[in-house]
Every structure is written in structure tokens, then in C-alpha cells.
Amino acid sequence: MKVLKFVLIGVVLFFIIFPLFMMTKYSISDRESIVTGGEYPEPFLPFKPTLEMFGALWSRSDFLKAGLTSLWVGLFAVAFSLLLGAPTAYALARFKIPGVAILLFLLLSVRLFPDISAVIPVAELLLSRPFSLLPPVVLVGLAHTLLALPYTVYIAKGVFESIPKDLEEQAFVLGAAKSRTFFKILTPLALPGLGAAAIYTFFLSWNEFIFAYFLTFQGTETTLPVYLLRILSWSPQKNFISAISLLICIPVIIFTFLVQRYMREGLTAGAVK
């Protein structure tokens, strides 16, 4: 059993690490290590490791601009989906609403349709007035909110249900107004769970291609996935593409790391009983 366990772990690790290794390897490869012309096999490690691709990317303003756009779109999507989703979830969790099961099913069923069938009406709506007056960053952010919202509501509903009602009533009895209870008691306790929803939304937004493409393909301002497509159309070298891929991972890692600090487990421990 033990051997099997280690073998399984090994296999899984290989599948995770191998692509990352290849990506890293190519990103620091010199020209001779990639363009072999079939005369010699590709080396396991590059002949002369170099950071020149990263330097080249750093000086490309369109790449940085796309990165920044993606970042803003992601943050917008996180903010919108939490601002809309958390209160919705709170209401669903706390109040007896007739037909709540149907409501929740309808909410999720939005996501049962493939994105490609939803993108035309959404793009049509967002690209006509008054929405079209908004900057593209906000438009794509709104589209991503649309995608993330059902899950955000689901996650946040679970979060609010896990916070005992006694805490709210206690705050109420001690004299706290609804707003104070929400911000001083509920919000701090809900943060870990809402953090999970935020990470999910950010990931979704950072990866999302179809909606971003339909909403921004005409303009110059576009997110990283759409920018990647444009780059690919020039048939760039492996090392260039790998360097971009690697850089794209970094903000996601940073964002996750930042948010995870709020996700201390068992925050409600000791509240009741």
C-alpha cells in the first residue's frame, strides 16, 4: 500500500511539475537550444541560459498593458461579484424565502449553458448603449461577474450559513445596529470564505477568453488571453511564448498568497458552545 501511495504521488507530481519545468526551461533557453534544425536533439537543459526573453517582454509596452488590463478586469470582477453576491447570499442564508431551492437552481443553471451560446447576447447587450460608454475594462469585468456570480453566491451562502445566528442576535441585544453587526461581526467571520470566492473569481477572470475576446477584439485594450492569441498569430518562438506563460502565472500566485492570509481555518471556533 505504502509503495503504491508513493508511486501515485510521484505520477501526480510528474504531471504537475513536468509542464512547469518545460515552460521554465524554454523561457530561459538561448536560440541554439530551441532551433536545432533537426541536426542535434534538443538539450535537457539549455546550452546558455539567458533572461533575454524576459527583458524583451519587460520592454514591450503592449504586453504590460494587457497584463494591467487583465489585473483590473480581475479586480473589478472580484469586487462586483462580492458586492452583489455576498448580500444576496446573506439574504438567501438568513431569510425564509419561498421557493429558494428553485431560485438557487435557476441561478446555477445559467452556467449550464456553454459560454459560447451566451456570449453573443451578452456581447450584444454590453456593446450597445448605455453599456458601450463604459471603458472595456469594466465591460469585461461585468461579463466575468456574470460568470462568477452564481458560484460566488453559492460559496458565500455556505459561509453565512456557517456563522451562527446567535452571534447576530447577541450583537443586536448588546446594542449593535445592523450595519455594525454586518461590518464588525459578520464580515470578519465571513472573510475566509469570501476569500475563497474571490480567488475563484480572480482565476476565472484571469483565464477567461471567449467573453474578453468578443468584447475587446476591436479595440487596443485587451486582456492577456486575448493578447496571447494575437502574439500566437505571429508564430513566435517557443522561448518567447514560454516566458509569457510563466509571467502570467505570477500575479495569480501573488493574489492567492495575499488572499490566503485571510483564510485562517476555523475562525468561528469558540463562538458557540
Binding site: D166, A176, L189, A271
Partner: peptide, 20 residues
């Protein structure tokens, strides 16, 4: 009157301490 205007305090069965 809302609870805070009644000059009462209540201890819940669950204690309802604010965990954070």
C-alpha cells in the same frame, strides 16, 4: 423598543462569543 433600549442583557445558551 429594540433590545438595546430596554436596559436588558442576555446570555445565550451557546454563549455567542465573537470568535475573532
Amino acid at each position: 423598543l429594540p433590545p438595546q433600549k430596554r436596559n436588558i442583557s442576555m446570555v445565550f445558551q451557546s454563549y455567542a462569543l465573537f470568535p475573532h
